[in-house]
């Protein structure tokens, strides 16, 4: 089974880069983006299967990025991450099209599971299309 291509979008460089390192170590193809516009730009150039999206980001926040992403590349599955336990933003994110919603600090195994589930869904829907 091919490994998922993952885009990690978070304004915290330390978090972002470590996640990417850990994902790459596990064989994922992972890229970092430190802001919403950067992520959208990267998505325009490269194709990804799953995007990890932080909701609270300066400038363009995760929900806006999600909207834009779903417009441009609806096939990319999105996992929302936040340090803020706002159910509203979670529900909103899901309604816009996020695959799941995780609360920081997230257990890495949980994250891997979420990624696996999202990737599977993408492959299934992609296969069906």
């Amino acid at each position: 089974m091919e490994q998922a291509r993952i885009l990690v979008v978070d304004d915290e460089r330390d978090y972002n880069e470590t996640i990417v390192k850990r994902l790459r170590r596990r064989g994922f193809e992972a890229e970092t983006a430190l802001s919403g516009p950067e992520a959208l730009e990267l998505l325009g150039r490269k194709s990804f299967d799953v995007a990890l999206l932080d909701i609270m980001m300066p400038g363009m926040d995760g929900i806006e990025v999600l909207r834009e992403l779903k417009k441009r590349t609806p096939e990319v599955e999105v996992i929302l991450l936040t340090g803020h336990a706002s159910v509203e933003s979670g529900v909103l994110g899901m309604s816009i099209g996020a695959n799941s919603y995780l609360l920081k600090p997230v257990d890495f195994d949980e994250l891997l599971a979420a990624i696996g589930q999202a990737y599977e869904r993408k492959r299934l829907s992609g296969g069906g299309a």
Binding site: E12, D14, G83, K104, P105
Partner: peptide, 11 residues
């Protein structure tokens, strides 16, 4: 606090 905690955890 959650954000730095997340980073510590990932490190």
């Amino acid at each position: 606090i959650n954000n730095p905690l997340a980073i510590i955890r990932e490190q």
